[in-house]
């Protein structure tokens, strides 16, 4: 028996928005420790890694490990039926071929039950080693989304260069070029407005704007985003999901031959 309850269904809606741009279907692996999802986009250029800890749920029970393959378009249809203030409970029996979603309004005046068929998906998990990154940039998530959107107008790729002075985003194409430099903030009142750079070595890498823009669909989940970079390894873009967990995106760089 699996059961997971979240008082704020809005969080699950936002998680789904954050992954459905990159993935059409995915397997939710449920265990005693929580819900995990790891999947690559079709082109195997980016990877989504979602971790929702069991202790972050308002109620959580998972007697046996369970892998639930879901069509994310169909899951989105169902989650759209939940009111923003509703509580959501996901339930499945052991070895079930369906998952149930129950939405309850405040005071339980309205209770809606939906069932969705599960799918058997071929899973290709990647082993991602613990990495000490040369540069870790923490910045407001809205600022990152804005930069990705703005630079996408200039070219398909954007370079991210990090030094101890700051982080520079640049793009170039037919219409011209764009450069945005962010300095580390000296002192800010609100922690989420800060730009913080931890640098061991300067790094400059180039990435496809299309994927970065997809990652920014997670912006509503967190006020801050963390970019981790090292020479010649994929970029990691991480959004914390409150006390519940995190979503990480991995993106392979582009190289010039």
């Amino acid at each position: 028996m699996f059961e997971a309850r979240l008082v704020q269904s809005a969080i699950l809606k936002k998680v789904l928005e954050a992954i459905k741009d990159l993935l059409t279907e995915a397997t939710f692996d449920c265990s005693d420790s929580g819900i995990q999802l790891q999947a690559m986009d079709n082109a195997h250029v980016s990877l989504v890694s979602l971790n929702l800890r069991s202790d972050g749920f308002d109620k959580y029970r998972c007697d046996r490990n369970l892998s639930m393959g879901m069509n994310l378009g169909n899951m989105t249809k169902i989650m759209k039926c939940a009111g923003a203030e509703d509580t959501v409970t996901m339930k499945a029996q052991d070895n079930a071929d369906v998952v149930a979603f129950m939405f309850e309004s405040k005071n339980q005046e309205k209770v809606s039950d939906y069932e969705m068929k599960l799918m058997n998906l071929d899973q290709e998990h990647l082993g991602i080693p613990e990495t000490d990154y040369s540069c870790i940039v923490k910045m407001p998530s809205q600022e990152f989304a804005r930069i990705c959107r703005d630079l996408s107008q200039f070219g398909e790729s954007m370079a991210i260069s990090c030094t101890k002075e700051g982080v520079k985003f640049s793009s170039a194409g037919d219409i011209g070029s764009a450069n945005i430099k962010l300095a580390q903030t000296a002192n800010v009142d609100a922690e989420e407005e800060a730009v913080v750079i931890e640098m061991q070595e300067p790094v400059s890498l180039t990435f496809a704007c299309r994927y970065l823009n997809s990652f920014t669909k997670a912006t509503p989940l967190s006020a801050q985003v963390q970019l981790s970079m090292s020479a010649d390894v994929p970029l990691v873009v991480e959004y914390k999901i409150g006390e519940l967990g995190h979503i990480r995106y991995y993106l392979a760089p582009k190289i010039e031959d």
């Binding site: 250029v45 998990h125 180039t206 392979a252 190289i255």
Partner: peptide, 14 residues
């Protein structure tokens, strides 16, 4: 020429 690399060029399929 700019080449888009893939994740499997960095990580092993577990």
């Amino acid at each position: 020429i700019v080449t888009q690399l893939r994740l499997c060029q960095y990580y092993i399929v577990a």
